[in-house]
Computed example of a mutant assay.
Amino acid sequence: MVNSFSLAGRVALVTGASRGIGRAVALGLAAAGARTVLTARSGKDLASLAAEIAGRGGEALVLEADIAAEGAAGRVVADAAAWAGRLDVVVNNAGAIAAAGPFLELTREDWRDTLGLNFHATAEVCRAAGPVMLAQGSGSVVNMASVAGTNGVPMISHYAVSKAAMISLTRTLATEWAAGGVRVNALAPGWVTTDLTGPFAAVEGLADSLVHSVPARRWGAVEDVTGPALFLASDASRFVTGHVLVVDGGLSAYEGGPGLLDLVPAGRIGLA
């Protein structure tokens, strides 16, 4: 029997849903039949997304909130569960990089702001959603990590650490909640074209260098993350928990520098 990708009759909460990966994932979950709860700091962008979902025959609730603010996660989860009477999917997508620079130049505030949104807010959403899902005996949490959380990444040490912490949280909650019917997994995108990565692409020569380090020879589009998110959210992955699904065009599978990829079309190299 093939497990279903359908989310008909289910309720999905997406944080950071107003743009980028969060927006694309919300549209994908809605297209699969989920009633969506959309939260972010930009109410205007959320309203536009909700209207697009409604125009496609879906249903969405907009909850404007700074998910990193004290008490916000609990209120958002409570409002989502009250609206629909249940909560089946949570996609913890909200995230940011407060600044980029060498480790010794990043400030305490840079670390506080980045970990506050990327990790602590995710943990608080899980803290609020866990009891709801465990009480109903089912649920899927998808945490948006990054390949930066599995590798050493210069210039964004605080971001990398926040994503590594998210991966550890994912695996820990997966083991704690599995017997209660709740799955917890993470997605780890590589270089995806978003507002978050825009400043890196704007650095002269850097975008081309980064593309040449990706075997797929391109950056990802936000839509490239939608299918993997749907897989983890749906019953198609019903026996998958504690997993980190990498979506990076082969970046993390490749150990060499860009120059080696350039040699592939030339074929075998004589070294003797």
Rank of each mutant, 00 (worst) to 15 (best):
S4C: 00
F5A: 04
G9P: 05
G9Q: 01
R10N: 09
R10F: 12
A12S: 14
L13P: 13
S18V: 05
S18I: 06
R19Q: 11
G20L: 02
G22Y: 03
G22K: 01
A30I: 06
R35Q: 11
V37L: 11
S42M: 02
S42A: 00
G43I: 00
G43L: 01
D45E: 06
I53F: 03
A54D: 07
G55W: 03
G57S: 02
E59T: 10
L61H: 13
L61G: 10
L63I: 13
A65F: 08
E70P: 15
A72L: 09
A73W: 10
V76S: 08
D79S: 03
D79L: 11
A82N: 10
W83N: 01
V89D: 12
N92Q: 12
G95M: 09
A96Y: 12
A98P: 08
A99Y: 02
G101V: 11
F103M: 11
L104E: 15
T107L: 05
E109A: 13
D110K: 00
T114G: 05
L115R: 04
G116E: 13
L117A: 11
L117V: 15
A123N: 03
A123D: 04
E124L: 09
E124Q: 12
V125L: 15
R127Q: 14
L134E: 10
S140T: 13
V141L: 15
V142K: 11
V142S: 12
N143R: 14
G149C: 08
G149E: 03
N151W: 10
P154A: 03
H158T: 13
H158D: 14
V161L: 08
V161N: 02
S162R: 04
K163D: 01
A164M: 07
A165P: 01
S168C: 03
R171F: 02
T172A: 13
A174T: 14
A174K: 13
A174M: 15
T175P: 02
E176H: 00
A179N: 01
G180I: 03
V182Y: 06
A188F: 05
G190C: 04
W191L: 10
T197N: 08
T197R: 09
G198S: 15
P199M: 12
A201I: 04
V203I: 15
E204L: 10
L206A: 13
L210T: 03
L210E: 06
V211R: 12
V211D: 01
H212S: 12
V214A: 01
P215Q: 12
A221W: 03
T226C: 03
G227E: 07
A229M: 00
L230Y: 01
F231I: 02
F231Y: 14
F231K: 02
S234N: 00
D235W: 04
D235Y: 06
R238P: 02
R238K: 09
F239T: 07
H243Y: 14
V244C: 14
G250K: 02
S252R: 04
S252K: 04
A253W: 01
E255R: 09
G256R: 07
G257P: 07
P258V: 06
P258K: 05
L261S: 12
D262S: 14
L263F: 09
P265F: 12
A266Q: 11
A266C: 02
G267C: 07
G267M: 11
